[in-house]
Simulated scan of single mutants.
Amino acid sequence: MKIGSPLRVAAVAVQKPDTAVTTTHAIELKRTDDHDADRTGINELPVSTIASGPDLAVGAARSALAAARWEPSSLDFIGHAWIHHQGHDFWSPAHFVADSLGAHRAMPVGIQQMCNGGAMGLELAATRLLADPTARRALVTTGDRFADEGFDRWKGDYGVWYGDGGTACLLERADIVSPHDVTLRSIVSKAIPSVESLHRGVDEFTPAARWLSPTTDVRRTKKGYIDARGLDEFHRISRAALREVVAQAVSEAGITLGDPRISSITVPRVGRTLMQETYASALDGMTKSHVSFTAAQSGHLGAGDLAANIEHVERTAPELDGHIGLFVSAGGGFTFTCAVIAFGAGAW
């Protein structure tokens, strides 16, 4: 999607719980082993003992609003995304986020697009701001808690460890862009629904959650898919889709893949080996930058990886002015997204 009018990323925040479990301790507890630890490259996972996913989203939103000096009442749109249980069975966590913040004028929308939900929330927020002249400010949140009672964060998936956390991103339609602003320049998504059964496998449709196992078992469905279809098709079309969304997003931002200002490419916070096999193998060489590994202290934050990666670049880049970042997201189904974000006047 081309961004015709400037959209300012006013603030981004990540809310982690106060507690974390190190990989060393997890190995001692036999939650994982040295082999998986070496393949993931993750040092620790944030683990919430009390706060729910929506609570963590609200915490991140409050931090972002404070950083931007925005009142919650100024928000026109709130998108909230998640991938796991939000604490209640039949309920709208997006409205909980809005009410907890006091953003009673905003339209809350729940977004369920697996791990790409945060990226799709950003795209929906941008669409709303560009299409509705009365809307100027939007908030996109994510929040998940992968409690042991329903999800084995260490062994529930292949090559992915799951951390608890919330994220928040504030987006504003701006009449004037200052030299220090962070701006969204384009965002492009592509779906490949022909591989949706990677997360369905050969399981029958069931009448209630966790009917087939006491915890969410991503390995079971992936094994069913692999046994039935193999992974060659998935790798072929997913790599093509990744390259397509990156190339299109860069083009729609008005730059080229060879632009030296593209100084970071971040991808979902999966384990290091999976990142190399799935993302770096497809994207390295497209630009003068290389895919960065950002999962070491968090693991996969569900739908929140894209926002967490923006926050990571803002916090760790030695010189932001003139920096252009490519932020890649993906989620089961499958959908891939790339957002092009410029940092400072020198980037444009």
Rank of each mutant, 00 (worst) to 15 (best):
S194M: 10
S194K: 10
V195I: 14
V195L: 13
E196R: 14
E196F: 11
E196K: 04
E196M: 07
S197R: 10
S197T: 09
S197P: 02
L198G: 00
H199E: 09
R200Q: 14
R200H: 09
G201R: 02
G201V: 04
V202A: 11
V202C: 12
D203K: 08
D203F: 02
D203M: 01
D203C: 13
D203L: 08
E204H: 07
E204G: 02
E204T: 07
E204Y: 03
F205D: 10
F205S: 08
F205K: 11
T206F: 03
P207K: 11
P207C: 07
P207V: 09
A208D: 14
A209F: 12
A209E: 03
A209S: 14
R210A: 05
R210H: 05
L212M: 13
L212Q: 12
S213F: 05
P214E: 07
P214Y: 07
T215A: 06
T215R: 12
T216Q: 11
T216L: 10
V218S: 05
R220N: 09
R220Y: 09
R220F: 06
T221G: 01
T221K: 14
T221D: 04
T221L: 00
K222C: 01
K222T: 15
K222A: 11
K223P: 00
K223A: 15
G224A: 09
G224N: 13
G224L: 04
Y225T: 01
Y225Q: 02
Y225G: 01
Y225E: 02
I226Y: 00
I226L: 04
D227W: 09
D227F: 12
R229D: 08
R229L: 06
R229V: 10
G230T: 15
